[in-house]
């Protein structure tokens, strides 16, 4: 129980720290934030009175802490405020961006799992065999290739040479295939390596021969004993995998000129649109903290030794 409180407390600290750090970074970036907002909003150089007005609106004139308070108070009640550039509320635009990015990320994760799990299971049947060695080689290569390069290769092959798939935009479901594949291959490569070491370790557990001698069927040993042991390290790194997915989705969206969280964030940063950037960062941090919380709980469920001090 105290462990649970501990975990929740840590989550709150992470969220507060993220909010403060992001705000401070944008605040201290070179240049006058009010001028940047003015240029973004009116696309012109504006008179000093207008700049003052912008400063007052965004709470920029009363110093860092005042501006931070000005911004954080409504967020705590679930209100992300309005864009300091367009004046439109942040949430509807952000919601649209999320609705485009989440399916892409999920498709990438699904492709990653579908490719890596069966491959890892088969490859580790014979550790050091040709299938195992070639899978490791391909996975290492895959993990080393950056997403933007892989994306360009796929565009060249499937869109330019073969002309099978569209490369730019997000109009139809077919537009999703190449970006999701780019993302999924990267996920598969990193999952593959973790799954492999997890499975090898699970297959080497000292109690497995005794189960077979007790007459437990091979597939039951795999399902009831090897799989849970292999899942422990995989669940542990799923949090990192999520970071990879989000980061990858943003990059992939830029390569394939897809609207979504990537373009939302890039535009907001270049316009120094504090409320928009902050909203994305806060939501991302919230997502991370929640997922890691869930992972922590799953981990305790899988391996209860984690929670008990005496073990």
């Amino acid at each position: 129980m105290t462990a649970l409180v501990d975990v929740l407390l840590r989550a709150v600290v992470v969220l507060a720290g993220t909010a403060l750090a992001t705000f401070a970074l944008l605040w201290h970036a070179p240049g006058d934030p009010a001028l940047a907002i003015a240029v973004a909003r009116y696309d012109a150089v504006v008179p000093p009175e207008v700049l003052d007005q912008i400063r007052a609106q965004a709470g920029l004139d009363a110093g860092f802490w005042s501006a931070f308070r000005h911004w954080i108070t409504p967020i705590l009640t679930g209100d992300f405020g309005s864009s300091s550039v367009s004046g439109r509320p942040v949430w509807p635009d952000l919601r649209d961006a999320i609705a485009l990015t989440v399916p892409l990320a999920l498709a990438g994760l699904a492709i990653g799992l579908v490719l890596s799990v069966p491959l890892a299971v088969f490859a580790t049947r014979r550790p050091g065999g040709w299938l195992d060695r070639s899978t490791v080689a391909v996975a290492s290569l895959g993990a080393a290739i950056p997403a933007y390069w892989l994306g360009l290769l796929l565009i060249l092959l499937f869109a330019v040479h073969l002309g099978w798939l569209p490369a730019m935009g997000a109009q139809t479901a077919a537009h999703m295939i190449l970006p999701a594949l780019t993302l999924g291959l990267g996920v598969a490569a990193s999952l593959m390596r973790i799954l492999r070491s997890g499975l090898l370790e699970a297959r080497g557990q000292p109690f497995l021969p005794a189960l077979a001698r007790r007459g437990v069927a091979r597939n039951r040993i795999g399902r009831d004993h090897v799989a849970p042991h292999a899942a422990v390290p995989v669940v542990t790194v799923l949090g990192l995998e999520l970071a990879f997915l989000l980061e990858g989705a943003v990059i992939v969206e830029v390569i394939f000129a897809r609207p979504g969280l990537g373009s939302f964030l890039v535009q907001a940063i270049s316009a120094r649109d504090f409320p928009k950037v902050q909203a994305v960062v806060i939501l991302t941090a919230l997502l991370f903290v929640t997922v890691n919380l869930l992972i922590d709980l799953t981990y305790r469920l899988l391996d209860p030794r984690t929670g008990s001090r005496d073990a």
């Binding site: 557990q205 000292p206 109690f207 021969p209 005794a210 189960l211 077979a212 001698r213 007790r214 007459g215 437990v216 009831d224 004993h225 849970p228 042991h229 899988l302 391996d303 030794r305």
Partner: peptide, 22 residues
Amino acid sequence: GGGRGVVAHAPQSPDEALDPLR
């Protein structure tokens, strides 16, 4: 063949007999 109940084997250490997750 342990499975048919003719012979049963108890290993030296419980670590070689029991899955700590079950």
